[in-house]
Amino acid sequence: MQIRRGKRSGAPTLDEVDAGIIDILRQNGRATNQEIAERMGVTPSTVSARLKRLDESKAMRVVAVSDFAAHDYNILIAVGVKVHGRDSKAVAEDLAALPEVFSVSLMSGPYDLEMLVVLREFDEIRLFLIDHVAAIPGVSALNPGIAADIVKFEFNVAPL
């Protein structure tokens, strides 16, 4: 059984050359077209054309990922949010507008919404949860957990 239906059409297909280019970029996203071409045994213009096509189809992106610490975000909290008397989607949109919210998703589970929040100092937890989040209409319960250690964090698939 598929968890989610729909949105399945329109995914571009990749051939071996595309897959090879993506593989090299996974190792080194800043490899030049010339370097990729040499390793693949194709011309730099082929690499350039393929990358342009992949970019236009929004199949993938080469991104610069910076560590939370680079932004002085020393605290990560995972917060379950229960919603009452208001559409959870509207609450999610209000939460998404807060800059401290790193991710927010509509869930099927014990909580209506789950969010990951990044903060700089411990005092900001109270400010964020009690002054900002609790003030959003519809928020009926909050269950925060503080990250003591991020052991693995590899998300190479995302909505682009």
Binding site: K7, R8, G10, A11, P12, L14, I22, L25, R26, N28, G29, R30, K58, A59, M60, R61, V62, V63, A64, V65, S66, D67, A69, A70, F155, N156, V157, A158, P159, L160
Partner: peptide
């Protein structure tokens, strides 16, 4: 502090 990587779209 910084890493360059490929992010694939959900559809792919």
């Amino acid at each position: 502090l910084v890493q360059f990587t490929v992010v694939t779209d959900f559809r792919m």
